[in-house]
Amino acid sequence: MQYFVYVLDHTYTDDSHTESKRLGYFKNLEELQKVKSKAVQLPGFKIFPECFVIQKYILDKVHWQDGFTETIGETGRDYLESGDEVDGSIVSVKDLQIDSVFFLSHTYTLNAYLDDERFIGIFSGYEKAQMVMNELKNKSGFKDFPDDFILDEVELNEMHWTTGFYWEQ
């Protein structure tokens, strides 16, 4: 059986750039909505209340399976344009009785103002994420920056961005 997690992001674009903040990972929409209700009251978020994005990501799915040869995206970041398509056969992680997941990405510095970042996946266990990371370390691009993987355990149903942000017009 496949499982998914809900992800709450806040992404807005102004005249100069796109800014995205990940607020958390969730087992269900009820917990996600509680966090969204708190966030919309914080500085920055309340200026852009329409910019909250709820997506579903399939657990243990590898979103970046190949190596790379060049910088990606407008600012060197690989933002997935949308979450995964989830049909009725894929269920929420609330059925797994887990309290955390493992987020895997790869980020290396191009210059003082720019990082090149790739989202790889959200995993149910450390060992699974570690296995994917080790496989990618042998692929082009990744093998040039093998120490630049980020593997974080993140708590489900918690607000991961607890302060607002400053926005200047």
Rank of each mutant, 00 (worst) to 15 (best):
M131A: 12
N138Y: 04
P146G: 01
H63Y: 04
T163C: 05
G24W: 03
V101P: 06
N157P: 14
G88M: 11
F45S: 02
G141H: 03
E158Q: 15
T163E: 11
F145S: 05
D148S: 05
N138V: 05
E81W: 13
L114N: 13
E81V: 12
P43Y: 08
S100P: 13
F52D: 04
A112S: 09
N134F: 02
P43T: 12
K46A: 07
V62A: 02
F145Y: 08
F26L: 06
L136Q: 01
L104E: 06
C51T: 10
T107P: 00
R77V: 10
Y57L: 08
L32C: 07
D66H: 06
L110F: 03
L42Q: 11
E158W: 02
L42D: 13
N28E: 13
G76E: 01
G121V: 03
G67L: 02
A112K: 13
D66T: 06
A129M: 03
F165P: 02
L23Q: 04
K139N: 06
N134D: 09
K36M: 12
F45P: 00
V101F: 14
A129K: 01
K94L: 10
M131K: 14
K46P: 06
G125K: 13
F103E: 08
S37D: 14
A129R: 00
F119K: 15
F119D: 08
T71N: 01
G88H: 14
G83H: 10
N157K: 15
D99E: 14
V86I: 12
A112T: 14
D148W: 01
N138Q: 11
N111F: 01
E85I: 13
W161F: 15
R77M: 10
F103T: 09
D144E: 14
L104A: 04
G164I: 02
G164W: 02
L32K: 04
Q41P: 03
L156P: 09
W64Y: 04
F145W: 05
V62M: 01
T75A: 07
S140R: 08
D152G: 04
N111K: 05
V93N: 12
E158R: 10
D78C: 07
D152V: 03
T69M: 03
F48N: 05
T162C: 05
G67K: 05
G141K: 01
S140F: 00
I54F: 04
E85F: 11
Y108D: 00
D115E: 07
D152P: 00
F123T: 08
V91E: 10
Q97I: 14
D87R: 12
L80F: 09
P43R: 11
T75I: 05
V93L: 13
I58V: 15
D152A: 09
V86Y: 11
S105W: 06
T163Q: 07
G83R: 02
K61F: 04
N111S: 09
K143L: 05
Q130A: 08
L136A: 00
V35E: 13
F149D: 00
V40Y: 11
K34E: 13
E74Y: 04
